[in-house]
């Protein structure tokens, strides 16, 4: 395998990692945001509390996709 094929595969790998990570993050945060809106519509005076919890859980849901994005960037720039 020559170098350009390996380089291509590195770029493909990085793209795959970041793409799938973004799908996971989008679906997760979308569901979470929907639940926030639903909860806020049931009890509007709990909205500030729910907002805080939303951000906390968003940080957790975002974790693995962020790891994948970080590693993908590393593969794209520092390896390939």
């Amino acid at each position: 395998m020559d170098a350009s094929l390996i380089s291509t595969i590195y770029y493909l790998a990085a793209g795959l990692m970041m793409g799938l990570a973004s799908v996971g993050a989008a679906v997760g945060i979308g569901v979470l945001g929907g639940k926030l809106l639903e909860g806020a519509s049931r009890q509007p005076d709990l909205l500030p509390f729910l907002r805080i919890q939303f951000f906390i859980v968003m940080g957790l849901v975002d974790a693995i996709p962020m790891i994948a994005v970080g590693l993908g960037m590393y593969v794209m720039f520092a390896v390939a």
Binding site: A63, M66, V69
Partner: peptide, 12 residues
């Protein structure tokens, strides 16, 4: 996950 979450966010 604890370590890599922080690393991934900051590195990205």
């Amino acid at each position: 996950s604890l370590g890599l979450r922080l690393f991934g966010n900051m590195y990205a």
